[in-house]
């Protein structure tokens, strides 16, 4: 596929480390609606070039966070910066594309009209990129948007988001309504753009099981605030899934299984004759417990179920000068 080369893009190739640049930084970011805090005390850094999953229960503030970063909403507390520029400033908005969940498209427009609107609204517009992206999904340029399937509309909305040539793409539940085949094609097309231009992606998703092939970075928010932030491989490697026969383990008075005192227990559960616990090990694992490496899904689910577990912010997500805990 040939493509006109742009000037605004950054590329990640070979062994060049791309961790040096920070795409996004939040400092004690919070947003209150009336008396209710939708998002509180979010502090982290996202290195450039990463594909970051944003997970959490409904009402944990995922959409609010994306809207603040996109410049569509002001925070009640704290600040967000995009490549060093305050979120909402002209400089930041020029580098960010935001695709909301409801995919705002005019149904009576043709696909070509939709792209033309993108071109007129965005100075750095790349028509060839947007058209290639549409054609690769076998969507005709003269088709009316209203006649397209959900998967095709997602592709058009993504084409508009990417045609702007952003450095940071924000996607709110982009895959929710797509069937598995279309989801895979859409993900493939998006990741190909990541490979081509080294863009940074932050996407909220309920599809926890699919995150580990899609994302290399993860943010987990709960109603209490940020719970996990960091490189996916790192987040997995600092946790162990311990299991033991139920009869061999008694519960301490506070309900947690005995014999885990050396570790930080994220979540423990007793099911019939088996006791299992997701822990951050603080020493050797002793009998009767056996240890295994968890999957990303197991780590995420443990933190989702145990909303008050200690937060874990990995070193490259850590914002200097703030009080968040650092893994290691």
């Amino acid at each position: 596929m040939t493509r006109t080369s742009g000037t605004s893009g950054t590329t990640v190739r070979g062994t060049a480390p791309h961790e040096a640049r920070v795409a996004l930084e939040l400092r004690e970011l919070g947003r209150r609606y009336g008396r209710h805090w939708a998002l509180r005390n979010a502090t982290f850094r996202l290195p450039a070039g990463r594909v970051c999953g944003l997970v959490g229960p409904n009402g944990a503030g995922k959409t609010t966070m994306l809207e603040i970063i996109a410049g569509l909403r002001r925070p009640t507390r704290g600040e967000a910066t995009v490549f060093g520029a305050p979120a909402g400033s002209a400089e930041a908005r020029a580098r960010v594309s935001f695709l909301p969940q409801e995919k705002p498209l005019f149904t009576r427009f043709s696909v070509a009209d939709t792209l033309r609107m993108g071109r007129e609204l965005n100075p750095g517009w790349d028509q060839a990129l947007a058209e290639d992206f549409v054609r690769a999904g076998s969507v005709a340029l003269d088709a009316k948007v209203g006649s397209l399937s959900g998967g095709q509309r997602t592709r058009i909305a993504l084409a508009v988001a990417l045609g702007k040539r952003p450095d940071l793409v924000l996607l709110d539940e982009p895959l929710a309504e797509l069937d598995p085949l279309v989801r895979r094609q859409t993900v493939g097309a998006l990741l190909a753009e990541v490979a081509e231009r080294g863009i940074t992606v932050l996407m909220s998703s309920h599809l926890v099981a699919e995150l580990d092939t899609l994302c290399d970075y993860l943010l987990l928010v709960s109603r209490g605030g940020l719970r996990l932030a960091g490189d996916v491989d790192e987040l997995i490697s600092v946790h162990r899934l311990l299991s033991a026969h139920g009869d061999a383990v008694v519960d301490a008075p506070d309900g947690t299984p005995a014999g885990l005192e050396a570790h930080t227990v994220v979540q423990a559960q007793r099911e019939r004759r088996q006791v299992s616990a997701l822990v951050r090990p603080g020493g050797p694992v002793t009998d009767p417990w056996t240890a295994a490496a968890p999957t990303l899904e197991e780590v995420v689910l443990a933190y989702l179920e145990q909303g008050d577990a200690d937060a874990l912010i990995s070193p490259n997500s850590h914002v200097p000068g703030t009080g968040t805990e650092v893994a290691a």
Partner: peptide
């Protein structure tokens, strides 16, 4: 990324 929907950072790693 295109054929297998694998994150390019994973492949490069």
């Amino acid at each position: 990324a295109e054929t297998c929907a694998v994150n390019p950072n994973t492949t490069l790693k």
